[in-house]
């Protein structure tokens, strides 16, 4: 259905007088303009909001009536040893959670490959649907599922273990400080595995079928075909997503951790976003802005770093 750009331009200006024709490049630019405007409005204009980091801003009071405080809120991050220790603890959690996320980011690739290898159509569709649905469940509801499964008093798992005689007392899975990072990454993949695989499924569909046929003729086994055709075929997609996730290293969001946090696991579950929410977001916009500024700067830095690595290792880059 797609029409080449030059033809499209001719179509559109068929009625116009020949003398008034705009060169095609301007036309194309005009067509792109609304999207550039949207990008500018939604991605560049908000940067103006960084100005709030330098004021003791209170919502409802105009900025000109608000005291200018310079870098005060930047300094509070490292004001005293206890404060610094808190920030270090939070950063440790952030790095751990994001690190685990990146280390396990091959999971949707594996899942997508396995899914395409299922030859029974209806079964594949059922599996794919069932694994995609959790993506649309909010974290708060995921938590209530977790609570019904793992609560001490009435949880399914504890009841089962008790009935089978493996344990004598209920285990408090949700309120303990052990393996919090692993548990969180497990919940994360439970929710987003199917969704994450969609891009790879698309990439696999895009691989030329002739390659497989040729390999078949050459007598390649199923595993060989996967290894030599499918995997290299989706590597570019994988690397683009990997680079983006490295760029998002410090943004692991807060919904999941907010829903699962309690006094027992708070030390290890509090990531940067949650920390900002817990201490600042409800009343201190200046501080929240400072943190988000620092996050943006770190993210841009990490993205370029990862891109450079990619250029160096794979001779390819996305920027």
């Amino acid at each position: 259905m797609s029409v080449p750009a030059d033809q499209l331009a001719q179509l559109g200006s068929a009625a116009a007088k020949p003398g008034r024709r705009l060169p095609n490049k301007y036309k194309l630019f005009l067509m792109a303009l609304p999207f550039l405007a949207v990008t500018f409005i939604f991605y560049y204009l908000p940067i103006y909001g960084w100005i709030y980091a330098f004021y003791d801003y209170i919502p409802g009071i105009p900025l000109e009536k608000t005291p200018f405080v310079g870098f005060k809120w930047f300094r509070t991050i490292a004001e005293n040893p206890t404060q610094t220790a808190e920030v270090v603890r939070v950063m440790k959690n952030t790095v751990a959670m994001s690190g685990l996320g990146i280390a396990t980011s091959f999971l949707p690739v594996v899942f997508a490959i396995l899914l395409t290898e299922i030859k029974t159509g209806w079964y594949r569709r059922i599996v794919q649907t069932l694994t995609t649905i959790p993506n649309f469940i909010s974290w708060i509801l995921v938590y209530s599922v977790a609570f019904t499964l793992f609560s001490v008093d009435n949880g399914l798992v504890n009841t089962l273990l008790l009935k089978l005689g493996f344990i004598d007392d209920g285990i408090n899975f949700l309120a303990n400080n052990r393996n919090v990072w692993l548990a969180m990454i497990a919940w994360y993949w439970w929710k987003s595995l199917g969704w994450g695989a969609i891009l790879y499924l698309a990439a696999i569909t895009g691989i030329d079928q002739e390659l497989y046929e040729a390999a078949e003729v050459d007598g390649a086994s199923r595993f060989r075909k996967i290894w030599h055709i499918t995997v290299p075929g989706i590597m570019p997609t994988f690397f683009v997503l990997l680079l983006l996730s490295i760029g998002n290293f410090v943004n692991n969001g807060m919904e999941q951790y907010f829903a699962f946090q309690n006094a027992m696991n708070k030390d290890t579950i509090e990531v940067l976003d949650l920390y900002v929410y817990n201490i600042a977001f409800s009343n201190n916009f200046a501080f929240a802005t400072v943190v988000s500024m620092l996050k943006s700067i770190i993210s841009v830095f990490l993205l370029f770093l990862a891109n450079g690595m990619s250029k160096w290792v794979r001779k390819e880059s996305i920027i």
Partner: peptide, 8 residues
């Protein structure tokens, strides 16, 4: 004390 106090 209800053991689920922390999480409910």
């Amino acid at each position: 004390v209800d053991p689920d106090s922390l999480t409910q």
